[in-house]
């Protein structure tokens, strides 16, 4: 039965949020999220392997605890691309496709640190949390993976099932800056 059409339903397809200079929220494209599990949590430096596996631009590598990373990008990953990425990581690490299990939200603006401080105890001052830093933390009542993309831009990654709930929280936390 190849006449059935299989369509993606984005987790935050109907979400609307603030878009002001203070804070703006954007649901990022459901491209790909690959969880990388190092063979040993305290393995030797894998940055070279990761960089090679992540390949060309449009993909970023975010640290996610000892021996673990997320490789993320805005475009979906084909089966072959995933297999290639997976192979490139062997034997140092295993790739797990989490493209559907994790949802990414971009938060940015002049007041973004103040807004996020309502949820996380991580000190987001650029001196303490420079561009490129990632943290797994509790944002309100929901566990997230937080990365500073630019000085006033953060990417939040959350379990798909919590995405709507987190989005609502973020909208409320942003209300005073919107």
């Amino acid at each position: 039965m190849s006449d059935f059409r299989i369509a993606l339903r984005p987790a935050l397809g109907s979400a609307t949020g603030p878009a002001s200079r203070g804070v703006s929220l954007t649901a990022m494209p459901e491209g790909h999220v690959v969880q990388v599990l190092g063979r040993r949590p305290h393995a030797p430096d894998l940055s070279g392997v990761l960089e090679k596996a992540a390949g060309p631009a449009h993909r970023a590598v975010h640290a996610a605890g000892p021996g673990q990373w997320f490789i993320v990008g805005d475009a979906p990953l084909s089966r072959d691309e995933f297999a290639a990425l997976s192979a490139a990581l062997q034997p140092h690490a295993t790739a797990v496709d989490q493209s559907h299990g994790r949802i990414r939200i971009r938060v940015e603006g002049t007041m973004v640190e103040r807004m996020l401080a309502k949820g996380t105890a991580v000190d987001l001052d650029p001196g303490a949390f420079p561009v490129g830093t990632s943290a797994m933390t509790l944002l309100g009542h929901v566990s997230v993976h937080l990365t500073r993309i630019e000085i006033a831009v953060f990417e939040i990654m959350v379990l798909r099932g919590f995405a709507e709930s987190l989005w609502e929280d973020l909208v409320r936390m942003s209300a005073e800056f919107a």
Binding site: Q35, L37, G38, R39, T94, V96, D97, Q98, S99, H100, G101, R102, L159, R160, G161
Partner: peptide
């Protein structure tokens, strides 16, 4: 090595 996949599937 363990990965939670509850939300992926």
């Amino acid at each position: 090595r363990l990965a939670s996949a509850t939300d992926q599937w």
